[in-house]
């Protein structure tokens, strides 16, 4: 495995391997000094064409806990407008002999293009409306820690599916691991076609609510009301927000997830966000863990056992082989 570009169509075994690997790093993160030399001498660059402080920090923290060096490139949209092509940017990084590039781009597919041009590993940290594979992994990991397994879990993903890379990746990762997914949104916020998607669809959150083990709320962006996708945020909240009333009708064991940052008062009531069953902070913590596993998987030798590597000063870098992810 050389790249992590997406989870759509990935086999269950690959996802489970990364989740199991994450358990090893959860143990590292629980230590007083959460740092191991597994990727010492490796350089990980974050290349963000779109601002996302949280995701960038999470990746950088993960890399640092594995003792990798980190570089941070901010590519302002203005420099792209000055004429630098995506390929120019990629080759500039290549010339700096970087081992892995973590890329966030507003355009769907950009990490796939980079992977064609670059020799180093490419990790997709979110491309357009398309994929956000490490978010899907951390969501799966969070649910696996909480419920033990995703098999048979009934998950409702609520909100702006159409423009959501989180939803696209989550649908395929959740279902690959055995969960049943229902998308809950008005037609305007659904993709134009769901042909081939392993999901059910509902426009009625109240009907789905009581039978859901997981309610996954997506961020509702204010611009959507200007595009006539919803009449108003008020109406959106009334139909699709997890209000206090709705939270009371959740099943006892149900949990609430959100990729952050939350719009308190829009998709989630402030009081609901602070309930124990809302696992948002677990998701953030698990994000670092899962990203450590991904970096380790891509950059460490495929034969190395993480349990040996953890804490082993003598463990050295081995070029990873394998085919594209």
């Amino acid at each position: 495995m050389k790249h992590l570009l997406g989870v759509i169509g990935q086999p269950r075994a690959m996802l489970e391997e990364l989740l199991q690997l994450s358990d090893s790093f959860a143990e590292v993160n629980a230590r007083a000094i959460p740092k191991v030399p597994a990727l010492r001498g490796r350089t990980v660059a974050t290349l963000f064409f779109e601002d996302s402080t949280r995701t960038r920090l999470s990746f950088e923290t993960a890399a640092k806990r594995l003792s990798a060096d980190t570089l941070s490139f901010s590519v302002s949209s203005s420099s792209v407008k000055k004429g630098e092509t995506l390929r120019d940017t990629a080759l500039t990084l290549q010339a700096m002999r970087i081992d892995a590039i973590v890329v966030r781009h507003a355009s769907s597919g950009a990490p796939w293009q980079l992977a064609r041009w670059l020799d180093c590993s490419v990790i997709n940290a979110g491309d357009g409306w398309h994929e956000h594979p490490t978010q899907a992994l951390l969501d799966c990991y969070t649910l696996r820690r909480h419920f033990g397994s995703l098999d048979g879990l009934r998950i409702a993903i609520v909100g702006d599916i159409k423009h959501s890379r989180v939803a696209r990746s989550d649908v395929w990762a959740f279902t690959a691991l055995g969960a049943e997914v229902t998308l809950v949104a008005p037609r305007t916020l659904l993709p134009p076609s769901l042909e081939g998607w392993p999901v059910q669809v509902s426009e009625d959150l109240d009907r789905v609510l009581g039978s859901s083990d997981v309610v996954y709320l997506l961020r509702m962006q204010r611009e959507r009301q200007h595009e006539a996708l919803v009449p108003s945020l008020r109406e959106y909240t009334a139909r699709f927000g997890l209000t206090r009333d709705r939270a009371e009708r959740l099943a006892d064991r149900a949990v609430v997830l959100h990729p952050g940052p939350m719009n308190r008062g829009v998709e989630i009531a402030p009081e609901v966000a602070d309930l124990d069953r809302c696992l948002v902070l677990d998701q953030v913590a698990n994000g670092v863990t899962v990203r450590m596993a991904v970096l380790y998987k891509l950059l460490a030798g495929s034969a190395a056992d993480p349990h040996d590597a953890v804490g082993d000063e003598a463990w050295g870098p081995i070029r990873s082989g394998g085919s594209d992810g």
Binding site: S108, E131, P191, P192, S193, E195, G196, W197
Partner: peptide, 15 residues
């Protein structure tokens, strides 16, 4: 083209 592929690839479609 707006359809299953634009939906899957997360690219805005032209119906």
């Amino acid at each position: 083209h707006e359809g299953p592929w634009s939906a899957r690839l997360g690219i805005g479609g032209i119906p």
